[in-house]
C-alpha cells in the first residue's frame, strides 16, 4: 500500500471537551485503503515550536464519504494549534503509515481495552472486527465521568464496560482492575493507552496466555523508518515503532 503525502481539507473539527477534538479530513482523490492501527503524520503549520510532524492514529474511515478522522488530545503547542483549525483549512498529512492490528482466529472472542487518548485506534478496529464477523467487548478507562468520550460510537460496536479512576461512572479504578479482564472470556486482547496501562494489560495477557496486541506511541522523527528514533526493544532487537509497529504483539516486547 503506497504511502502518500497530501494536503487534505478539513471538513469538520469537532471539539468533544476541553481536551479532545476530532478532525475529519477529506481525500483529494479516492482515499487509499487503510487498516486499523495505522497512523498519519501531520504537519503542524503556524506553531513555531513544533518542528517535527505529529503522529496520530486513524480513528475512523468512511470510504463512502471519502474521509478519515483523527482523535486528538491537546497535550502541547502542536496539538493546541491543531485544535484551532477550522472547517475548510487544510492539513498536510503523510499516510497511511505503519502496520495494523491482526484479526483474531476463527471463532475467537476479542476484547478492546483503551484508556484516554488510547481509545483513538480502537473505533476503527472495532468496526473492522465487526465487519469481519467478530463480536468485540470493549473496556474503556477514563479519569472521571466528565472525561468520557466517544461512548455512543463504541456502544454500536459491542458491549462497553467503563472504569473511572474516581468511580464517578462504571467500576472505580483502572481498566486492569475491572473484573471483566480476569473473567478469562477472551482469546485476543487489543490495547491502546498510556504506557503503564498497556504494560499492565500485557503482563496480564502473558500470565494468562492470551494473545495481546498493543499500539505504541513512541516519540517519532520521520514516521517512515528513516531516522530510527522511535525504536522499541523487542526479542528481535530494536525495531521502529513507525514501520515495524505501531502495533506489536506483547510476546515480542521486552517489557
Amino acid at each position: 500500500m503506497a504511502k502518500r503525502i497530501e494536503s487534505l481539507q478539513i471538513i469538520e473539527n469537532k471539539h468533544l471537551n476541553n481536551d479532545f477534538f476530532i478532525i475529519e479530513l477529506k481525500g483529494n482523490g479516492q482515499i487509499p485503503e487503510m487498516k486499523p492501527g495505522q497512523f498519519v503524520q501531520v504537519k503542524v503549520d503556524g506553531s513555531p515550536g513544533t518542528f517535527l510532524r505529529r503522529p496520530f492514529s486513524i480513528h475512523d474511515v468512511n470510504y463512502d464519504r471519502n474521509t478519515y478522522k483523527l482523535l486528538v488530545q491537546i497535550v502541547g503547542k502542536g496539538t493546541e494549534t491543531l485544535s484551532k483549525l477550522k472547517k475548510g483549512d487544510s492539513l498536510n498529512t503523510i499516510y497511511p503509515l505503519g502496520n495494523s492490528f491482526s484479526l483474531p482466529g476463527k471463532g475467537q472472542r476479542p476484547l478492546l481495552v483503551g484508556g484516554g487518548c488510547g481509545i483513538a485506534p480502537l473505533l476503527f478496529l472495532g468496526k473492522y472486527l465487526k465487519k469481519n464477523g467478530y463480536d468485540p467487548d470493549i473496556l474503556l478507562g477514563f479519569r472521571s465521568r466528565d472525561r468520557i468520550i466517544e461512548y455512543n460510537e463504541y456502544i454500536e460496536l459491542g458491549e462497553v464496560f467503563l472504569t473511572t479512576e474516581d468511580g464517578s461512572r462504571g467500576e472505580k479504578g483502572l481498566v486492569t482492575e475491572h473484573p471483566l479482564l480476569s473473567s478469562s472470556r477472551y482469546d485476543m486482547i487489543y490495547c491502546c493507552g498510556p504506557d503503564p496501562m498497556m504494560k499492565a494489560v500485557a503482563k496480564f495477557s502473558i500470565e494468562h496466555k492470551i494473545n495481546c496486541e498493543v499500539s505504541l506511541e513512541n516519540l517519532m522523527g520521520c514516521g517512515i523508518g528513516a531516522c530510527l528514533c522511535c525504536i522499541v526493544e523487542t526479542v528481535k532487537g530494536n525495531l521502529c515503532t513507525c514501520t515495524d509497529g505501531p502495533v506489536f504483539n506483547t510476546n515480542d516486547l521486552k517489557w
Binding site: 518542528f51 517535527l52 513512541n218 516519540l219 522523527g221 528514533c229
Partner: peptide
C-alpha cells in the same frame, strides 16, 4: 544503537 529515548525536539531542530 542507544536506548530510547534517543530524540528530542528543540527550537527549530532536533537532537538525536
Amino acid at each position: 544503537g542507544n536506548a530510547y529515548p534517543r530524540m528530542a525536539e528543540t527550537p527549530s531542530g532536533m537532537l538525536n
